[in-house]
Simulated scan of single mutants.
Amino acid sequence: MTWPPTGDLVIHGDNLAAAATLPDGAFTLVYLDPPFNTGRSQTRQSTTSVRSASGTTAGTVVGFQGQRYERIRGDLMSYDDEFEDYWSFLEPRLAEAWRLLADDGTLYLHLDYREAHYAKVLLDALFGRECFLNEIIWAYDYGGKSKRRWPTKHDTILVYVKDPKGYFFDSQAVDREPYMAPGLVTPEKAARGKLPTDVWWHTIVSPTGREKTGYPTQKPEGVLRRIVQASSREGDWVLDLFAGSGTTGAVAASLGRRFVLVDTSPDAVAVIRRRLAAAGVPARFSETAP
């Protein structure tokens, strides 16, 4: 394999197989937006011969915490056996994502409320609690409203770093946002805006807006822009293993980053091709990694 590739890359194929061909530590930022498991079922995928976060190769990913991880994993499965199929699908992909992170790299795992609590416990055990950086709440207010409970209008983005003492994070590079109570700060501060917290109020992709591609799980550029700005530098490589509509690539290119996108769906790859072409991004499309 030749790394880095000569240009930005879009791989059409299984993301686990594609990830296995990419070199260790190649990416400063990995963003994962996997299926949310809303139907509570997922085809089981084998974890045979997947290299774990600790560098071992085994049928079961062991992780930094060894048997403690296996006990926590087993405990969680014991009171939600349907989750096991979902985690068996996601677990080896997270292990590969961790391997692909640079020493100063950051992993962003985008989930909804159905899986976030499971994922955080397992990621703490798999990678170490000291590597947990943030739980970001992306809140929005669009769509139907339940009258039998508080309407669920947020996603959760779990943020883990490769090295808790040496990760890259640049808060000053992030676009500022308006103060919710500008009268409580000086006019200078109000004009400059404030740095975002771990709660992000951002609309979903507008059905009539310029970003709309028609892809059903498309995420807004504003959310990815904040992630890419904070956790990568110009020229750094960004990876998205569940590329979907290609938002990560579009944002990375606009900010001067390099990217690799992977998706198994022909529809997703077609959307990405059109989107990047419209933006003038000369990415290479391939059925395999370089």
Rank of each mutant, 00 (worst) to 15 (best):
M1Q: 11
T2F: 12
W3S: 02
P5D: 09
T6D: 14
L9P: 00
L9V: 12
V10R: 00
H12D: 02
G13E: 07
G13Q: 07
D14M: 07
P23T: 08
P35I: 02
P35M: 04
S41D: 15
Q45V: 03
Q45W: 04
S46N: 01
T48Q: 12
T48K: 13
S49E: 08
R51F: 03
T56F: 09
T60R: 13
G63A: 10
F64A: 14
F64D: 14
Q67V: 10
R68Y: 06
E70I: 07
E70K: 11
G74A: 08
L76T: 00
D80V: 01
E82A: 13
E84W: 05
Y86G: 03
W87F: 08
F89L: 15
L90M: 13
A95R: 01
W98N: 08
W98Y: 10
W98C: 04
R99F: 09
R99G: 05
D104H: 11
T106D: 06
L109S: 07
R114W: 00
Y118Q: 10
A119E: 03
A119Q: 08
L126R: 10
L126W: 15
F127Y: 12
G128I: 07
R129N: 00
E135M: 13
I136V: 14
I137D: 07
W138N: 06
Y140K: 09
D141E: 14
G143I: 04
G143K: 02
K145G: 03
S146T: 12
R148T: 07
R148W: 03
T156C: 01
I157V: 10
V159M: 12
Y160P: 11
Y160A: 15
Y167R: 12
F169C: 15
A173R: 05
A173Q: 06
V174Q: 05
D175Q: 05
R176L: 01
E177F: 14
A181D: 13
A181R: 13
L184A: 14
V185S: 14
E188V: 10
A190F: 05
A191Y: 11
R192D: 06
R192H: 03
G193K: 08
K194G: 01
P196W: 01
W200F: 01
H202L: 15
T203S: 15
S206P: 11
S206E: 08
G209K: 10
G209A: 15
R210C: 05
R210P: 07
E211S: 12
K212I: 07
K212M: 12
T213W: 06
G214T: 00
A230S: 09
E234Y: 06
D236K: 14
L239N: 12
L239F: 07
D240R: 05
L241I: 03
L241Y: 02
F242W: 04
A243N: 04
G244A: 08
G244R: 01
G244W: 06
G249I: 01
G249S: 08
V251G: 07
A252K: 09
L255M: 14
R258T: 04
R258G: 00
V260E: 02
P266R: 13
D267A: 11
A268S: 12
A268E: 01
R273F: 10
P282S: 08
P282M: 11
T288F: 05
